[in-house]
Design a protein around this nucleic acid. Structure first.
Lengths: 231, 231
DNA sequence: ACGGATTTGTCCGTATGTATC
DNA sequence: TGATACATACGGACAAATCCG
């Protein structure tokens, strides 16, 4: 009973603290360092407790901002993704986006191709991980737009939303190692060239290869996280 | 669990906002600082999202003036216009449902196949139009379920909802009144057989042929309605 | 024609959580 | 456990461009 775990102590104290707080959103908690000092325990223990509280939905945290009480403020999500599994999303992308590239090759106008190239050039000079994610998404969406089918565009947006939710970890980790980034860059240009040349077969195949590469990259990464696995 | 990057959040919210705006040009958006405060995020995140939207051609900005909604060539749709969508929906079905059949052939269990056969038997003894419509939809949805991918199922439901559009029902039912019904019946059984045999290639091809036949049936019908349209 | 007010464009410092040792 | 390096988010400050009286 004496020295079980400081995390549980922090957990009780923090929970108590939360109950006394006003229920209005946007209540900022003290920083982790301050809490650790106030409770006379290590910051690691505070973090463990906060992780549990976050999972319970009592608090939410954002890097660079702080820890806040209450549910997340931006719950605009209209249940787009149940429990988005990464493999499921990739399977859908692998089977749909090649069709979008094919249709885009048949129907894309010069201004669409121009926008694609512009987006790619911006993607390549972006160092920020968040920004890269945004530009990459914009590129794929531009292709979906160029496909000229509003239903396909709607479907793409459904996938894209889930992709952003799922990207929370894997893509950012993946951004760390640059070799893949170069390969993706080449694949992107290959796709645009095929579309510009109105070559649906090549466009579809290029898109398929690209998504397959991304899929493999993410898969390898998640496998690396689990120990004892050599290529 | 669903807290994505702030930029992506701003991106979705802004695009949604743009779609709800009147189509008239010269619509000035709130200032970046106002948007940042309204969305409860930093101005930097707003700016990243606006950059992408500008590259997509949805908005245009001028320093000192503000951000304006640009021309909107394609709008996200919630209420599709009937006529033009028919070909669009058919195009989507033709390119997606074969994949569903393939996956179903790989993953369908015995009970799924059992349900498909049961649904088909009920479809074949149904005389009224509403009933046939319902059973046919149920058959295709059972295949989507058997594909074992929740996203694909979600996407299928999106398509299926449009398919049930009131204005199309008459057309589809007329297309089914013909001897086409017999052909569709055979194609349905061919699909189920291929799935039961775990033959993805045959299943995909059978589904493709089926949807192509339905598509042709509808197309022929709509052309018959408009007599003698000459180039 | 002029000047103040407003808005976008740009940069940097600070604060915070995250990851690693 | 404690300490350090790192990525990210935020806000302020200033310049450039524009608008309005």
């Amino acid at each position: 009973m004496s020295e079980q775990d400081n995390s549980s102590l922090a957990f009780e104290r923090l929970r108590e603290m939360l109950c006394e707080m006003p229920q209005t959103g946007d209540v900022k908690l003290p920083t982790e360092r301050a809490l650790a000092e106030a409770l006379r325990i290590s910051r690691r223990s505070v973090r463990r407790a906060l992780e549990v509280l976050e999972a319970e939905g009592l608090v939410w945290r954002r890097q660079g901002a702080g820890t806040f009480a209450g549910p997340r403020p931006d719950t605009l999500i209209d249940t787009p993704a149940p429990e988005a599994n990464l493999t499921e999303v990739m399977e859908v992308r692998l089977r749909i986006e090649p069709h979008l590239a094919q249709l885009a090759a048949l129907r894309a106008g010069a201004e669409s191709v121009e926008r694609m190239r512009d987006i790619l050039s911006r993607l390549e000079v972006t160092e920020d991980a968040d920004g890269r994610e945004l530009w990459d998404s914009a590129f794929h969406r531009e292709i979906a737009r160029a496909a000229g089918n509003r239903f396909f565009l709607m479907i793409f947006d459904t996938i894209d939303r889930s992709r952003h939710e799922e990207s929370w970890r894997a893509i950012r980790e993946q951004a760390r190692n640059r070799p893949n980034l170069e390969r993706y860059k080449g694949q992107h240009h290959e796709i645009v060239e095929a579309i510009a040349a109105h070559d649906p077969v090549r466009a579809g195949e290029a898109m398929r290869a690209h998504i397959k590469a991304v899929n493999d990259g993410v898969l390898n990464l998640t496998m690396m996280e689990q120990p004892a696995d050599a290529p």
